[in-house]
């Protein structure tokens, strides 16, 4: 059976992934929209920054995050002043790191959906007198809903699989920063293969079910659109 430590790691992982996904679904749409539409000269620079976590080893990202979380850095000091506690080896620090680490997985599907969105519909929306906010909620969002689902799912799944960054900045504090992937690594290191198996298969089944559910919903929607 799964130990209490395992369960707490699973709970923590799900909590981290959910909060990360939620945060990403709030900050990514405007960012993706800007990246899809902006003609400013520094857009490629911002675009590259967003995509960096895709190419950098997670440990590099984790290293720089660890430095910026330190009370000696501006950001770290500011955070301590604001909240009274440090970011390194804390859940809040983990959340910030996950948001940055999974950002491209949410921004990129949205950005490509926004690029491909037929501009004609946006013109219609403005001739119907819609404000940009109304256009987003009533036209853009429903028309690109599948991309939002995929973006959310990728962000969630990617956060669950996070290892290197967590290792660098979160450490291994049970109930606070010890996530699933770290617990699994511990089991293997201490030769508890049975526990490792159990945890691995649970994670595998969970991820597979989630993906099947999402792709199933998308297929149904596609079919409905084709039939109508």
């Amino acid at each position: 059976m799964l130990s209490e430590l395992d369960l707490s790691a699973i709970y923590l992982t799900l909590k981290l992934a959910s909060l990360t996904t939620l945060t990403l679904l709030i900050i990514s749409p405007p960012l993706a929209w800007w990246l899809a539409r902006s003609k400013l000269f520094f857009r490629p620079f911002i675009e590259s920054l967003v995509a960096l976590p895709l190419v950098l080893p997670p440990t590099v990202l984790g290293f720089y995050l660890l430095l910026s979380f330190s009370p000696d850095s501006y950001f770290g000091a500011f955070w301590i002043q604001l909240t009274g506690s440090g970011l390194a080896f804390s859940f809040a620090g983990l959340l910030i790191a996950s948001v940055i680490y999974s950002l491209p997985f949410v921004v990129q599907p949205l950005q490509s959906a926004f690029v491909n969105l037929d501009k004609n519909y946006l013109e219609v929306a403005s001739t119907l007198g819609f404000s940009p906010i109304k256009t987003f909620y009533k036209v853009v969002f429903p028309m690109t809903l599948p991309s939002f689902i995929i973006a959310g799912a990728l962000g969630f799944a990617h956060t669950i699989g996070e290892f290197g960054v967590v290792l660098m900045i979160g450490g291994n504090i049970p109930g606070e920063t010890q996530v699933l992937s770290i617990t699994l690594f511990d089991h293997v290191e201490t030769l508890q293969y049975e526990q490792a198996h159990l945890l691995s298969i649970s994670l595998l089944i969970f991820s597979m079910s989630l993906l099947i559910l999402i792709y199933g919903v998308l297929q149904k929607r596609q079919k409905r659109l084709n039939d109508a």
Binding site: N120, Y121, E123, V124, P142, M143, L145, L225
Partner: peptide
């Protein structure tokens, strides 16, 4: 009010 050459109804 604008009527374009193509109807441009929202497909969703």
């Amino acid at each position: 009010g604008m009527v374009f050459q193509e109807p441009r109804l929202f497909p969703h």
